[in-house]
Design a protein around this nucleic acid. Sequence first.
DNA 1: GTGGTCCAAATGTGATCACAAATGCATATG
DNA 2: CATATGCATTTGTGATCACATTTGGACCAC
Lengths: 214, 214
Amino acid sequence: MAEKLQDSYLAAHDQLYRTLRMRIMYGEMRPGQAITLRGVAKEFGVSVTPVREALKRLAAEGALSISVSGRFQTPALTNDRIEELAALRALIEVELATRALPRAHMALVERLQTINNAISVAVAKADAVTYIRTNLEFHRTLYLRAQAPAMLATVETVWLQMGPTMRALYGRLQRKDPPIHHRLILAALKAGDEPGLRVAVRADVTQGLRMLAR
Amino acid sequence: MAEKLQDSYLAAHDQLYRTLRMRIMYGEMRPGQAITLRGVAKEFGVSVTPVREALKRLAAEGALSISVSGRFQTPALTNDRIEELAALRALIEVELATRALPRAHMALVERLQTINNAISVAVAKADAVTYIRTNLEFHRTLYLRAQAPAMLATVETVWLQMGPTMRALYGRLQRKDPPIHHRLILAALKAGDEPGLRVAVRADVTQGLRMLAR
DNA sequence: GTGGTCCAAATGTGATCACAAATGCATATG
DNA sequence: CATATGCATTTGTGATCACATTTGGACCAC
């Protein structure tokens, strides 16, 4: 099976998948950017076989779209699709936060605050990729406490689909302030305030949507 | 690209994907059943290359699980995982039904009633596969009216993951009656009763869960 | 200049092969 | 009879090749 001795070793197609997935989810690619089998194969020094698997997998998750002739590119989402994905985020993430709440102890809140500081730094530097990555890390860290792997996987797929678009939106946004809703989330977690937490998460998730609908 | 002239032609790996996906979603395979590249390749008269793509794609969607040594098999879900997937169904399908409600005219209700009759026939014959397929067709027909393709795709992925388990559950269930909740859904659609529709959909989706938790 | 034609390069697809690891069963051993 | 050993088979992975289609642009006609 071409696997080496160490457990940490990953098959080539899996390594490719993870690397490309991060690039897409964290906004390192523009919407509509083309990807070719031989281009990726050359960049990573492998043949087209593992690249095909990685790209097909990403396409199956909606991270890439396939043209009628089989070409791969990052998706350029319509406004309707963005609204739908944001609604999905709201539905699932509110549930995940609710399930995490009874397990959210002080140590978790402190970790979230640390991540939030990193988000503020990224905002100050206008570093879009770091902003997106740390922002998603904030959410993922909270939701991991929900002990709901299927829900988390589903919402990560949604994040993946929105990656390139979020990057493009960030450029238009010109953020200057650290995320206000994250503070509301942290306050609700500390207070054990479930209704407040649900409102705060929903607001945070749908916040970026409003500036789009102008 | 090895495609023929007609638009209806599909690439081999896509044809494989759709066929296997239907087998899994509609409960034609038992939980834990093994699938091999060469076995599928031989059955369909193709090489392993397109089979690999189809199986990897199904695995990416959670329809198949991969052992540490790379073997494919249908997933055997834990009770926790089943509860989680049912909760996901409830979240998303209630939203889809709500979005479909204002567009649900009489013609749609009549189509749903026709499908419901087919479900009753399948129940009477104790035909598990037909029951699962027509039951999902009932839901899909309603949700198509919601004009929310991303949500529909997400919930179909959940159905896919539950396929083999639903079949196993059906064997234990020994259904004798046509689905009572579907009648409640139809009544709520006719009356334009959104709260009633939400309750009915949620009950229908989580119904099968209770007999599992015994 | 505009639109059409043709051809070379680029691209995805599927088959085949070599390889390494895992599997499973027969055989041996206590 | 139970357990361990060894070996042939099975299995997934990745590289390579041939092929058909698509793409892009140069070239030409009007």
